[in-house]
Write a protein that binds this DNA or RNA. Structure first.
Lengths: 230, 230
DNA sequence: CCGCTGTACTCGGTATCCCATATTATGCCT
DNA sequence: AGGCATAATATGGGATACCGAGTACAGCGG
């Protein structure tokens, strides 16, 4: 796995050694898991206890998450979990779409025969997750699918951006994949991307990738609409 | 200005109040200005003196710049100014191209008649900068051009990303705009973008915007090639 | 000439302190 | 009783001082 990552030029994250990286991961996870909900205040001194680290670390971590967009700091108050509105979510999906479509096209236009099989493997993981009802597995396999898409053509800058954006819409992703018929539609759309890549059809790969993200965005917007009606 | 910014949803940066924001701006500026060159170590305690702030601040700032990609921290050592290689630069130009082309298309497809004049104004600024030899003015006007492109269609997420990427290739930008004939080619390409927008031709706007970034990237790659020959 | 050792440097991390502000609780006066 | 002024609390912004560990380099000895 490591050698493979090195071969693709993709930065392999070595076992996070510094406390700060650990704390960063933990807090990010906690926010993603919903332990802290959007709008909740993130009190530095409380986090020190909960994370078991000093305020220095907590502050560095908060700053980092702030630049990731997961945390926002209001002037007179302090850091809170950044709320996500429909407009921002829409924009995030849009950028993701642009970048993932770009990557899909590049994959199609490269002549690396290992791409399609690797994507198929990830796709199989997604289908298996749906079949077994393991939604966590669906999410990680989906990430793997896109990771392959970017790393096979050595686009780690774009991949980093997509990753940054993805964490912000994490809970939306969890909901979109549970939507009615998404268990067949989603994989089908992704299979269409793989097909286009296999056919070396860059334009089609670009188009179907764009459509896939757009349909996920549509579902997300529907979720916002439903929520508002409450 | 504030009301306009609010209307466009574009984040207006209020006069940085916290010491941290000041220090962040100063250090970023220093790196961009070349006070610290790629590979230079950024010794925390030295920066404390030079910036006149405590280590707390310096560390938060370094963390922030790290997540911006301007600074990289090597495990056993410490923070250094992130070196920029041709591969990364290429990828940054590529992502910028994808996003700017997207914004150009959106501008063309919107029916906001204020877009083209605003872009023309920025373009005039660029031409004036070239005419007077004020390259700093060329750069800020170019940024203004793209800021308008994104803000007129309310894409501040994408704009933030483009901005983040742009600082990393700042010195390349300074060099590309000084390239032979870039003083006529560059503005001509940007005028083509405005023309396409005025004609409501989304596909053409997308294409010419892509081409403009690609030509800038080509020049940047040439700079890397020349540098290597030394 | 090469290898070892010790010292200086610096980072990651911690523990306190101080100050300003914002919120909340208290209490007094009308 | 109600409203306003005030005090107490909570918290963020910032500064210091300190410690342990790893790196780098200089000098010493073989």
């Amino acid at each position: 796995m490591d050698s493979k990552a090195a071969k693709t030029g993709m930065k392999v994250e070595r076992p996070a050694k510094t406390l700060r990286e650990l704390a960063l991961g933990n807090l990010r996870e906690a926010i993603l898991e919903g332990v802290f909900k959007p709008g909740d205040r993130l009190v530095e001194r409380d986090l020190c206890e909960q994370l078991g680290v000093s305020r220095t670390i907590v502050r560095e971590v908060l700053r980092h998450l702030e630049s990731e967009g997961l945390v926002s700091t209001q002037i007179g108050k302090g850091p809170i979990v950044a709320p996500l509105d429909a407009d921002i979510a829409q924009q995030i999906y849009e950028v993701r779409g642009a970048l993932e479509a770009m990557a899909a096209r590049l994959c199609a236009e490269s002549d690396d025969p290992t791409i399609a099989p690797a994507l198929d493997a990830a796709l199989a993981g997604i289908r298996k997750g749906y079949a077994t009802g393991d939604m966590g597995h669906v999410l990680t396999s989906t990430s793997e699918f896109y990771r392959v898409l970017f790393s096979k053509v050595n686009r780690h800058v774009a991949w980093d951006i997509v990753n940054m954006l993805t964490v912000r819409i994490n809970h939306l992703r969890s909901m979109t994949i549970k939507t009615d018929k998404r268990d067949v539609e989603g994989p089908a759309q992704m299979a269409a991307i793989v097909d286009a890549i296999r056919d070396r059809d860059g334009a089609r790969a670009y188009r179907v990738a764009t459509e896939h993200v757009a349909s996920a965005a549509d579902i997300a917007m529907q979720i916002f609409a439903d929520r508002e009606q409450t």
